[in-house]
Write a protein that binds this DNA or RNA. Structure first.
Length: 424
RNA sequence: GGAGAGGUGGCCGAGCGGUCGAAGGCGGCCGCUUGCUAAGCGGCAGAGGGUUAACAGCCCUCCGAGGGUUCGAAUCCCUCCCUCUCCGCCA
């Protein structure tokens, strides 16, 4: 949620910033202004009536104790109450409308974010590693996975439908190795490991911005009114909702491995082969809860922490800064990390690192008490560190050999307890 | 799932339908006292909102959440959420 006071005080600025995402968003600002004006008008009336009621009710108490007649006053208060009830009904409606509207307005892009309409206008920031030259035609990971008997798409589909895959044998162990490797690396850097619930309440989804706008992308357990998390960002970031932290508690660094569940509504036809786009995939997530004045340096180090995984794995990658039009709903600024896929001859996203500033903190009501004693919203950041399934796919492709076997990256050998994964 | 108990300020814990945003204790902050520490004394401290130049003043709301009764509710009634105890079931 963006600060309504900012909308009130600098509506043109807010419109200008939102327009860099999508020009149609500026209308929403005018709607907010209108509703907010009405809301405050009603509040002023209700409150003065309430003050009057309070005074008169106290008066009644006093007179009664003195044994005097109060029926006339009581009648007055009854009328005031009716008036209050009417106004409160209006207020409830206006507030509800305003809230619904506010929850659907995305975060303002940071001024440093390049303006652009879609992913084609994202800006490459840096590259690391050289894509390997193969002496043969590199196979796509799904072919390698099937040849090695570690990826089973048919049985996955039998069990749960398309975009579900069964990982087997050394493939499963490689995946588990990646998870452990990533968690070990991040916890050494000071991130605290967490195992959160994978099912959360609607208001938790609202806190990080998945709801109300992206309901169709989520799996919901109707009977219990719970949602499956699409990323560990959701439970981790919400961990301190409705809390006032101490300044010295910041920054808080968290990491978690969880499966992620996404309906992938609207992505029909994209990445239908392989494990790039699955309804369920594993991810190790990084979350930071930080002092607002330091969130941008924290974003840079967050990206570095995620990059470190790929460096140690020896996978070529690049870092891309998302343009305004490609930015996610809650983010002010985002870097994507993309790893090289030889079979596709291009880089594919394995991590997305965002600074959400106080956008999520407002929704979750997570604050801290600063040195002058004022309560302020924290800034929240999140980043994949990394998407495990995609990293596995990248390893299969980048480390493949002509005979179909796959070399295990050096840093994973102790975890996997093998140097090579061979067919059979 | 069944039976019972309970949810009050950073923590513990009182609270008669009106004078309660709430006693008291602990913890916190600021003074004073004081070789140091400890103790003692005095004072200050909740959250959100409206008005406003204002983190001043005034006003409104908040005692798990939401409804209701009442002239008036932390106190009475209903629903929900959560916690604890016992029983049942269970990895």
């Amino acid at each position: 949620m963006i600060d309504i006071e900012l909308i009130r005080k600098k509506p043109e600025y807010v419109k200008e910033r939102l327009a860099t995402r999508d020009k149609s968003l500026t209308d929403l600002v005018d709607q907010v202004l209108d509703l907010d004006g009405r809301r405050r008008g009603i509040i002023a009336k209700v409150e003065s009536l309430r003050a009057e009621r309070n005074r008169k009710s106290k008066e009644i108490g006093k007179l009664r104790r003195e044994g005097k007649d109060t029926s006339a006053l009581e009648e007055e208060v009854r009328h005031i109450k009716e008036e209050i009830d009417r106004l409160e009904e209006d207020l409830r409606k206006v507030r509800e409308d305003l809230r619904k509207l506010m929850l659907r307005i995305p975060n303002l892009p940071h001024p440093s974010v390049p303006v652009g309409e879609d992913e084609t206008q994202n800006v490459e920031v840096r590259r690391w590693g050289e894509p390997k030259e193969f002496s043969f035609d590199p196979r796509p990971h799904w072919e390698i996975g099937e040849m090695l008997g570690i990826l089973d798409f048919e049985r996955g589909a039998t069990l749960a439908g398309s975009r579900f895959t069964v990982v087997k044998g050394l493939g499963a162990r490689l995946e588990r190795a990646l998870i452990n490797f990533m968690l070990d690396l991040h916890t050494e850097k000071g991130y605290r490991e967490v195992i959160p619930p994978h099912l959360v309440r609607p208001e938790i989804m609202e806190g990080t911005g998945q709801l109300p706008k992206f309901e169709e992308d989520l799996y919901r357990c109707d009977r219990d009114d719970l949602y499956l998390i699409p990323t560990a960002e959701v439970p981790l970031t919400n961990l301190f909702r409705d809390e006032i932290l101490r300044e010295e508690d910041l920054p808080i660094y968290l990491t978690a491995y969880t499966p992620c569940y996404r309906r992938e509504a609207g992505s029909h036809g994209k990445d239908v082969r392989g494990i790039i786009r699955q309804h369920q995939f594993n991810k190790v997530e990084l979350v930071k809860i930080v002092h607002p004045e330091r969130s941008y340096e924290e974003l840079e180090s967050l990206v570095r922490d995620a990059e470190e995984v790929l460096r140690l794995l020896g996978l070529p990658y690049r870092v891309v800064e998302l343009c305004t039009g490609d930015l996610g709903f809650s983010a002010s600024k985002t870097y994507d990390i993309e790893v090289w896929f030889p079979s596709q001859g291009r880089y594919r996203e394995v991590s997305s690192c965002s600074n959400c500033e106080d956008f999520q903190a407002r929704r979750m009501n997570t604050r801290f008490k600063d040195s002058s004693g004022r309560n302020r919203f924290v800034h929240t950041l999140n980043g994949s560190g990394l998407a495990v399934g995609r990293t596995l796919a990248a390893i299969l492709e980048n480390y493949q050999r002509e005979d179909g076997s796959v070399e295990v990256p050096e840093v994973l050998r102790d975890y996997v307890k093998a140097d090579i994964i061979s067919p059979g």
